[in-house]
Structures are given as C-alpha cells and as structure tokens.
Write a protein that binds this DNA or RNA. Sequence first.
RNA 1: GCGCCCUUCGUCUAGUGGUCUAGGACGUCGCCCUUUCACGGCGAAAACACGGGUUCGAGUCCCGUAGGGCGUACCA
Length: 466
Amino acid sequence: MNTPVVTRFAPSPTGFLHIGGARTALFNWLFARANGGKFLLRIEDTDRARSTPEATEAIFNGLKWLGLDWDDEAVSQAARMDRHAEVAHQMLENGSAYKCFATQEEIAAFRDAAKAAGTSTVYRSPWRDATDLPDAPYVVRLKAPREGEIVVEDAVQGRVAWKSETLDDLILLRSDGTPTYMLAVVVDDHDMGVTHVIRGDDHLTNAARQVLILDAMGWPRPVYAHIPLIHGEDGAKFSKRHGAPGVEDYRDMGYPAEAMRNYLARLSWSHGDDEFFTTAQAIEWFGLDAISKGAARFDFKKLDNLSGQHIRAMDDADLTQLLTDYMALQQMPVPGPEIRESLTQAMPALKERAKKLPDLIEMGHYLLTSRPLEMDAKAASQIDDVSRGMLERLTERLRNVTWTHTDLEATIKAFAGEEELKLGKVMQPMRSALTGRSTSPSIFDVLVHLGREESLARIDDVLAAG
RNA sequence: GCGCCCUUCGUCUAGUGGUCUAGGACGUCGCCCUUUCACGGCGAAAACACGGGUUCGAGUCCCGUAGGGCGUACCA
C-alpha cells in the first residue's frame, strides 16, 4: 500500500479566483479524488498588505461554485509564522543556514554594478562562513551548495537541472524575523503531509530552491508536477483584457459548473480523443502522465459548445433548478412552482438550442411572461392587417382541434395549404403573438406548453389590438 | 543579461522510431434536414516552427536557430 495521496491548492488572497488558479485547483482536486486522497486548501496570506478577507471569501466561493470541495479546514499561512521561524532556527543550528548582515542597500548596489558590468547578479554573501558576527539586524539565508547541480524530477516536466552556481543563498527569515514565502511553502507542505505538489510552471524555478530547504531539513520531497499556464485567446497571458479572468465571471455568464470543469480539464490534459465527459469520468481518467507541457489558450467557442452539450445532457428537473438558482443569483425574479413545472415540461425543447443558462431564459421567455405580452421589434414586425386576418381565420380552426402536437401540426399545415401560404408565413406571426419574440422553440411545442386557453388568449390579444 | 520551460491544423489536442499519404474536437466553408434560431447528418479546406545530425527509417531521439512563456525580490 502506498502512502495516501495529499494534494493542495495554495492561492494568495489578493483578488478573485483566477481562471488559471481554478484549473490548478481542479487538477489537484481531480488527482486527489482519483487516488482516494485528500485535497487541502491553504491560503497564502503572508503578504498582509495585499491580502484581504474579501479575496479569501472570493476564493472559497469560486471553489464551491466549481464544486471543488476541500478536505479539513483551510489553513492560513500567516497563522503559522512561528512554526516557519522555528524551522529557520533549526536550520541555523544544523548549519544549513547562516545569519547575513548585509543591508538591502549593499545588495542593491551590488546588483546594479553587476548588471552594468554584465556579470552575474547572483549575490554572494560575505557572511556565509563568518565567525565574528556583529550585533546588528540580520537575515537568515540558506547555505546553498555552490557546486554540482540541483535536480528535480518533475512528473510533468521530466528531469530539470540547474547549476548550483546560478542560484543564490535564498532568504529564509527577513530582518524583522518574518518568514519568506519560500520557507513557508516548504514547511507548510511538509507539515500538512502534502505528497504531490501540482502547481503552475511559474513555480518551476522555485522548486529548485525549495528542494534545497527540504534536503537541509532531511525531509522527503513531494512529487512535483508543474503544469503549464493558461493563455488568453491572443496567446498573451490571461488577464482582464480577455474579458473574464475570474471564475465568478463564468458563473455569471451562465456556464454550468460541470461544463466548466470539463473544459478546464481539457486544457493541457487529455484522455485520448475524449472531449465531452462527466466529472466522474474525469476523476476516473485523470493522471499526471497525461498532462502536456505546452501552455494552452482559452477558447470561448469551444467552451460554448461543451456547455451546450452538458445542458442538453442534463436532467430536465435538475436543469430547471440550476436555472432558477442562476436567476436568483443574478437578481432576476424567480419563477414560482407552477412556472417551474412548465419550464421542466418544456425543457426538452428549450435546451435543444441553448449554450448557456441565459439562452434558456431567452428561449423560455414565453413561459416566464404573462399577458398582455410585450413584443420586441422583430416580433412586432410580423404583425400587420394581413397577418391579423390570417390569424383570425386560423384561430377559428384551433378552437375545435384536439390540443396535441400532432393534431395541431396537422391542422396548421392543412390551413397553410388551403391559404396557399408557406408555413413560415403562418408560423412567424403566431410566434410573435404567442411568445413576443422572433425565436423560440417549435410553435407546436409552444402551443402545447401554453395550453389551449392561454394560447388562444394570447392570439386574441393581438387581434384585439388591431 | 542570466537561468529554466515550451513549440503538431486558426484553437484544444491524439501521437511515446516504421501501422502518419498525421487522427479527433471546436471553429470555418459547402450540402442535407428545417417555420426562425439551434440541434442533428454528410462532406471539404486546414498542422508536425526552421536547420543540422543519429538511424535502414524521425512528428516521435540529439544539437543548434527562431519565436513564445516563466523566473531572476528582505512579493507570493
């Protein structure tokens, strides 16, 4: 039996949950669930100036919406500062770290000079092996190896190596005694028992330095998996410019979370030719070995298509629930039980032509409004004296027909034949009268959904207005 | 500047030395279905960044070049 898998997602609470972060969280979650392990959440709030409780809340909400439930309590990194400092002092004692008394000004001056001279900007502290220490503020630095290479075996990137001389002695504790990110991550991951570190490949270089801390403490290394970043549709880094950098934007646009998980999972990960799959399937199939190394671009067209497929695959009652939840979230009037019931009944017709939740609202508009209907401009253009006359003659027939899809269809088609009208000439004015829109599900469906009384009343309204 | 990573159709990707005249999906175009829109069906155009090797044989391995990304903080 192997050690149980423990993964984690460790965002900084400095804003919303970024789409890239969401994908990282998803991969961690998928991997944990696929292996019967734990998925932990740690808020990296040590940058007090930039961290806010609102942002933490936004991250929680984003993850919840996506359905990425985490195990145990979320850990606050800031709350663990003492523990981080403790480890730094252990390292001081075991000789893998040292006190450096160089001031920030000195170091900055060194770097400026090195840059100007075109030489290495890696700072070499003169205090590394000093024995005569002054009584002054100091920083704790890692005593990193200066020869050989540092090798990280990455589950995605493969073997990655750095020459030791290209890395400096990173700072563990600042001169005010607070821990740096580099130290905190390593200590927290170790203490939390994290076995697999799955994160963006912007951290790949950090792995080299973090591994050194691990080695210094004699702690085992986790499996690293540095996954590629997500780019915007133009290939540049995903940002506000691309319209929707946060997961809540996607929620607001009306993409079902299931579709979002499906789409996000397909960015830099694949399972053969499978494009459309459920979350359960993703869990079953997910593995680190199928993650590719190249960055992926975000493509709304494909997301839309996938989203439409998920909507069509969903259970009608569930979909109605999802839709009304969405309407509530968007501060729209929420339909009552009766309308909800008719929405569910009509759902097979509505969802045929929807990609996102708002499409369902637009398609089901005729069920959500009540008489007298307000027509939009396109719908109104279908109504004139000629079409009114036609509608009037048709209505006479409709009063006596059995109110079923087949009979309605037969009657209306026969009527169109007798009047020598193309079917569209009959249907579009009817659509205007019944739905107030120029697009809707099939008119026969609409008629059935609305029922005889309501349908005829809506048409009569239009006739009366003439 | 230095370090590291990446590079198959417009986009997401399959591909782990021969079965690749490179497969799928989205998108695009055409046809069909059709009361609009959509869905669905059929079909088409569309890619191994470039240059050297290694090998009987390279999309697959190696080295360069170009392009892109990330990092290079007493930020995370």
